[in-house]
Design a protein around this nucleic acid. Sequence first.
DNA 1: ATCGATTTGTCCGTATGTATT
DNA 2: AAATACATACGGACAAATCGA
Lengths: 241, 241
Amino acid sequence: MVDRENGIPYYRQLMSSIQQQIEAGFYKEGQQIPTEMEMSRANQVNRHTIRQAIDELCRIGVLYRLKGKGTFVAKAPLDSIEYQLSTKNRFTENIMQAGKVPSNKVFRAVEMIAPTVVKEALALGADESVYCIHVLRFVNGKPFLLSQVFLPAKYFPGLFDRISDFQTLSLLIEQYGINPRRVKSTLRASFPSQEEALALEIPSNMPVIKVENVLKSQDDILIEYNLSCYRGDLAKLSIAW
Amino acid sequence: MVDRENGIPYYRQLMSSIQQQIEAGFYKEGQQIPTEMEMSRANQVNRHTIRQAIDELCRIGVLYRLKGKGTFVAKAPLDSIEYQLSTKNRFTENIMQAGKVPSNKVFRAVEMIAPTVVKEALALGADESVYCIHVLRFVNGKPFLLSQVFLPAKYFPGLFDRISDFQTLSLLIEQYGINPRRVKSTLRASFPSQEEALALEIPSNMPVIKVENVLKSQDDILIEYNLSCYRGDLAKLSIAW
DNA sequence: ATCGATTTGTCCGTATGTATT
DNA sequence: AAATACATACGGACAAATCGA
């Protein structure tokens, strides 16, 4: 029941109360909490006041609503995954070394004229063509990062014939005798696009880390540009010097 | 005026309408938009419906409210500042090289028993004492990052006598003949604490990059641990290999 | 497959509190 | 002190989605 004297807004009190019950394990992950009407009666406040509290808890990711069904406790934040950024760019190896299970899903693979950013990053000519591959990468079955990989077509003839049965992107690239290494990365915190949020299975208000990588081959040829979007709740990127 | 037939919620229509007027330059950055009552009358909808639209626009950072004053257009995202992470950890130098003006403000400087994370990171003994310095760092006068720096007291005798007139933290540390270098950094995207949001002058719903750094001296002694919180809208962290 | 009950989503109206000018 | 503007809270109504009888 809300305290009507202490000057704290009712909806704030209700937020705390609900959150405490979740932390105490009274409401468990994925479980439905009482309906707005029930809570309204139980706490002797208007339904809108309950809604205001639930709104805030949804906003910060504690609850989620399903129209016509009810309101549910969001999944507890998962253990974060430390992902080492280094000159090597091998997702599969990197995750396996951490004792977790990596997997991939190729969303889209198209050939296109290099977009300006890619052209500039890889020092390509005016109308050079690149392969653009969208890969969603999972750790222990959970979506972890979404990568848009750009590879100059001239260095990877017949790439699409081989892509269907590729296990790891690294192995595919290796087939061309190329061993890429990171030369520069830039990182920003932001929010996912709608597409990214969907693929990563996160709400659009969860922050992500967007990383822009430029890679060179062993012969110092600019060989790959990729944009990676890491889930903010899962990814801890580490750099060792 | 809202379209009452097309099935799109009024508050969504109002959001678009307001956002368009901002993009068209009709409402400019920092400028007050009409009051809720005015918009309620102008659009022939209830004040709560207007509020709902404004709520969402505040949430995504387009507007901000000041109780008793009004609702205002948020500042356009500033040009991002590329900040190079390297073994060197010199904020002042780093920013000056990029042709911008750095400045510092020491918030708090206290001596304390090392918190567990710091103790573990710096391999300190049970009750060892550390100096904890909170520094807010500005670029061109805008808050850019908030650092909590932890230095083992044993290596920095009499630090507080010198701190009052320090220009850059690097120079202060240099006075002890120490030249720290980064050995490991881990990065995460998240939201600022209330204190961080206040210091960095950002809303609490703007993402930040939190970086944990461990530094060693030239003699390979673990010499500094710091937690830095970068503004997500300003910071582009880059790493070169 | 349909209908009715349930539950969240949207919208309106009103009143009062609190901070600013 | 009064007016203004956002903040909180109450009330009612209907729409839209879900689910089970």
